[in-house]
């Protein structure tokens, strides 16, 4: 019962959504929009569940003084601080429990949540991702080391796209005559992006789409049930 009833529910809602596509009239269209609204609310709770899990994991490490517990404490404090500021005084145009805090805004120049977002979250996020610029160089060496035709293709395309999308590309082949303009780096990069790249992306989309349709059908029919977890 604990496993069968959820499968039944998945089947019912899946079939209703499918039917609504072929019967776009009341009550099916209303049922689908209602289900989509419910989906958003439940996914909000699912995110809350993820945050609770994060707090539990960090608390466990801090209480048991596991390795690097001090850093997890810092993480928990920053989580609590950002959450409290957001709930109390809101974010951007949205007021919080205590309103818009005009006094604090006059002091900080913006809401406390937005201040923390602009001066801590945003720099951390941008720097973490920019760090990849360094590691991508070593990754590129390993990936591009000439092993065969495939790795050569990857390397040559990447170089053409990088050069073609920067000013150096225009500078290097800008002198080419009109009848050889196809080999001008920016034009070559455009050609690669427009044709071979689109072909491969299209192949990926079609193949992945077929896979998604198959998986969805398996879920609706109850063949795929791994999302329910174990038999506890």
């Amino acid at each position: 019962m604990k496993s069968t009833a959820p499968l039944f529910f998945a089947f019912i809602v899946g079939v209703i959504v499918l039917l609504s596509e072929f019967i776009p009239h009341s009550p099916f269209n209303q049922i689908v929009s209602t289900l989509e609204g419910w989906f958003m609310i439940i996914s909000g709770f699912a995110i809350l569940l993820g945050q609770i899990s994060l707090i539990r994991m960090n608390t466990h490490k801090i209480v048991h003084k596991l390795d690097n517990w001090q850093y997890h404490l810092a993480g928990l404090i920053s989580f609590g601080l950002m959450l409290t500021l957001g709930l109390l005084w809101g974010m951007q145009e949205t007021p919080g429990i205590l309103g818009d805090a005009p006094g604090i805004q006059a002091w900080l120049g913006q809401k406390p949540f937005d201040y923390l977002f602009d001066n801590a979250y945003l720099p951390l996020s941008a720097t973490l991702f920019s760090l990849l610029a360094f590691f991508i160089a070593s990754a590129a060496y390993r990936a591009f080391i000439i092993r065969g035709l495939e790795s050569n293709l990857l390397m040559i395309t990447a170089i053409i796209v990088i050069i073609g999308r920067t000013s150096i590309g225009t500078m290097l082949t800008g002198w080419l005559p009109e009848n050889l303009q196809f080999w001008h780096f920016p034009n070559l990069a455009d050609f690669i992006m427009e044709f071979p790249n689109t072909a491969a992306q299209r192949a990926i989309l079609i193949s992945a789409g077929l896979g998604i349709v198959g998986s969805s059908l398996r879920i609706i029919l109850g063949i795929e049930r791994s999302y329910l977890g174990g038999d506890k």
């Binding site: 959820p6 809602v13 959504v17 596509e21 989509e36 439940i42 996914s43 969805s216």
Partner: peptide, 28 residues
């Protein structure tokens, strides 16, 4: 399992139609 089943069922129904249209038929 009940809310997960409803979410997964809804997602499966929506994805099946959406991907069939945008990623298969339109690309073909």
């Amino acid at each position: 399992r009940y809310p997960i089943a409803i979410m997964v069922g809804t997602t499966a129904g929506i994805s099946m139609l959406r991907y069939m249209k945008s990623d298969i038929l339109q690309q073909l």
